[in-house]
Design a protein around this nucleic acid. Structure first.
Length: 565
RNA sequence: GACCCGUUAGCUCAGCUGGUAGAGCAAUUCACUUUUAAUGAAUGGGCCCUAGGUUCGAAUCCUAGACGGGUCACCA
């Protein structure tokens, strides 16, 4: 049998199982069936959580007897076998459930006739999920253990687990096979339990403040609410392009126009940009909008939220983050944007307010910048290069240049700055909030300025003109403050994780490297029935009947037309 | 996108200036009725990421590529 076609079928056998270890395990599975044991039974109930079992039998350790045990008690435990130590006619194993490891003991004489030698010892192994019934005792080395009178298979594993001591180290496998990572590296689960708690608490916090949770579209006709490149998809029935949302902002503010005075949404945004340790193409944000409030109120409620999270998670206000320590004690420091350039970034004040001087300063420090950028954008270049990474403890940077804040309200005192802040910690942006721009004419002009920027600098992340949104504002929106908080990055801070991939259950990965011989056999027709297009990646099978059709309907039509000519 | 590092048994990793591919765990067989990464003995297990090149000979050297990790750039 050829060894080289992992993903194909040959002779009716699926060859991902073509491996000595897997074959051994499949043999054992078959043997179980032969002797009338279903390796995948359906009627098993979860046993007592291992933690409860251990806690409840802690008292056995106090017994004065030679053998510390209580045969009057009966327990059922369930879990995955992580270790097996067979010593002839008796054996110890450790099984793991959601709470952790617990030891079980079984021997030839206390199990049904022949069951130990023929079944448990030979056919149960590390990786299998089992059910164990018996009474508690304490071993000579002082470990509370279940002495089994019955052991049953719950689910047979036909793939072996990684090595028991070193576990699964390979980062790639850890991300691609997260379930295996979770089986082998218990702390991984802790991080995601923490993440779940954070999301839940954030939701509860806003609900308790009478915010309404809403769900707005994820497929947008015009991408908006942030500066970012969107993913593009196609709606077949309408034959239109749709953009996966880069932010929910503009829809949430439409709801404020509609009279909802406090709303929030926690969900994914999608940005078609580079990936690194702080960027995943899909990421989770909470955005909330609060009528009759200003950006200063947002800073207060943000501090309140952090206190709420830390109190409910029982976390110390000073948390380690790699080499550094972050002090989350509220209130957080507040520094105006331009001031931060000087006090934190160390840039002479006279430079920070002059385009020509900034360009010279940037050049001096070997930072490339487009000369067509406006003052605000140039100040942003300075901020990114000299300030951002120095913001370790939570810091609100306030009063942003208005031209880099196209959706924020101008300050009544100074038309060049916006009522906006961003919250930074450990050199990373965590939140962004502002008093919302509710002047429809001003909003129109700002969109237009974005479109102009796009033309002047080719910045394809600048915003699009969204006249539908301007129309909504034109009906009148109450003065409103709105904020977005990056949940992934927040969880990174709270769990001392330095890669966003470690707080995402299934981070985005490139497709696995294809091995040439392993390509699936393709015996169906490989050209589009309508236009004759023959690039396999562009084709999909017909919904009904046979044949292939183009995924991109518009392109298909065009090809068909050209062919007709 | 640029640079650096990695890819060898199911897993964790060795493999020197090029000379028949190694260990531990795991697996198979045997011994062992309180072990703690159980122990002892024997056996089996490799497209050395892929494709080219240099060479009498390549896991090893060269070129290109794939995937992963890191640094930087991009992402206000």
């Amino acid at each position: 049998m050829p060894k080289k076609s992992r993903n194909t079928k040959t002779g009716g056998e699926i060859l991902i199982f073509d491996n000595q270890y897997i074959q051994e395990r499949i043999k054992k599975t078959k043997k179980l069936r032969e002797i009338g044991i279903n390796p995948y039974p359906n009627q098993i109930k979860k046993g007592m959580p291992s933690k409860h079992f251990l806690a409840e039998n802690e008292i056995l350790k106090e017994l004065d007897a030679e053998v510390k045990k209580d045969e009057t008690k009966h327990y059922t435990l369930t879990g995955r076998i992580k270790f097996v130590r067979i010593m002839g006619k008796a054996a110890f194993a450790k099984i793991e459930d959601n709470d952790g490891l617990v030891q079980i003991y079984y021997n030839r004489d206390d199990l049904p006739e022949g069951y130990y030698n023929d079944v448990v010892k030979k056919l149960f192994e590390v990786g299998d999920i089992i059910e164990a019934k018996g009474f508690p005792f304490v071993t000579q080395t002082g470990e509370i253990t279940l002495h089994c009178t019955e052991v049953n298979i719950v689910s047979k594993a036909i793939f072996p687990l990684p090595e028991k001591f070193h576990g699964l180290q390979d980062q790639e496998l850890r991300y691609r096979q997260r379930y295996l990572d979770m089986i082998m590296n218990p702390h991984v689960k802790e991080t995601f339990v923490m993440r779940s708690k954070v999301v839940s608490l954030v939701r509860r916090f806003f609900e308790e403040k009478n915010f309404l949770e809403v769900e707005t579209p994820m497929m947008h006709p015009i991408p908006g609410g942030a500066n970012a490149r969107p993913f593009i998809t196609h709606h077949n029935a309408l034959d239109v392009e749709r953009y996966l949302r880069i932010a929910p902002e503009l829809y949430l503010k439409r709801l404020i126009v509609g009279g909802m005075e406090a709303v929030f949404e926690i969900n994914r945004n999608f940005r078609n940009e580079g990936m690194d340790h702080t960027h995943n193409p899909e990421f989770t944000m909470i955005e909330f909008y609060w009528a009759y409030h200003r950006y200063t109120d947002l800073m207060n409620i943000t501090e309140e939220l952090f206190d709420y999270l830390f109190d409910n998670l029982g976390l110390d206000r000073k948390l380690p983050y790699g080499e550094i320590k972050i002090d989350f004690t509220t209130p957080f420091t507040k520094v105006p944007y331009i001031e931060a350039l000087t006090t934190i970034g160390g840039i002479p004040a006279e430079i920070t307010k002059d385009k020509v001087k900034i360009l010279a300063y940037l050049k001096e420090h070997k930072i490339e910048a487009d000369e067509n950028l406006t003052l605000g954008y140039l100040q942003a270049e300075l901020f990114d290069a000299f300030v951002e990474e120095k913001l370790i403890n939570p810091t609100f940077i306030t009063d942003f240049p208005v031209d880099i804040s196209p959706l924020a309200r101008r300050s009544d005192d100074n038309p060049d700055i916006a009522e906006r802040f961003e919250l930074f910690m450990a050199g990373k942006e965590i939140a962004n909030g502002f008093s919302e721009l509710n002047d429809p004419i001003d909003q129109y002009e700002r969109f237009k300025a974005q479109v102009d920027t796009k033309e002047a600098t080719g910045d394809d992340e600048a915003m699009h003109m969204d006249t539908d949104y301007v129309k909504a504002l034109s009906y009148g929106m109450t003065p409103t403050a709105g904020e977005g908080i990056g949940i992934d990055r927040l969880v990174m801070m709270l769990t001392n994780q330095h890669s966003i991939r470690d707080v995402l259950l299934f981070p985005a990965m490139k497709p696995e490297a294809p091995r040439p011989e392993l390509q699936p056999l393709c015996d169906v027709e490989t050209i589009c029935k309508k236009c004759g297009h023959d690039v396999a990646e562009d084709l999909k099978p017909a919904k009904k009947g046979k044949g292939m059709f183009c995924i991109d309907v518009a392109a298909c039509k065009q090809r068909a037309q050209e062919k007709a000519k």
